[in-house]
């Protein structure tokens, strides 16, 4: 899967789970500060990512995935 393909899927999950405007979902966007998520939202979001990409994100890694770009980078590395 290319980085662009990963990005498209991640963005779709974020739009669905957080109910945000697509234009707000930039790579630099912080889930809590920029996209209005709370701690439970971010848990649910990463569960959606795990399900879609069939990966397991360990808790110590999950804590670091605070922005859209970091999630994409993490997946790109993991799936390469």
């Amino acid at each position: 899967m290319t980085r662009d393909e990963i990005k498209q899927k991640v963005v779709d999950i974020i739009i669905e789970k957080l109910g945000v405007d697509p234009s707000a979902v930039t790579e630099g966007a912080h889930f809590i500060k920029d996209l209005g998520a709370d701690s439970l939202d971010t848990v649910e979001l990463l569960m959606g990512v795990e399900e879609t990409f069939n990966v397991e994100i360990p808790d110590e890694e999950a804590g670091k995935l605070e922005t859209v770009g970091k999630v994409i980078d993490y997946l790109a590395q993991k799936l390469s």
Partner: peptide, 10 residues
């Protein structure tokens, strides 16, 4: 168990 929603309880 990892599939249970974090929103389930509330």
């Amino acid at each position: 168990p990892t599939k249970v929603s974090p929103f389930f309880i509330p």
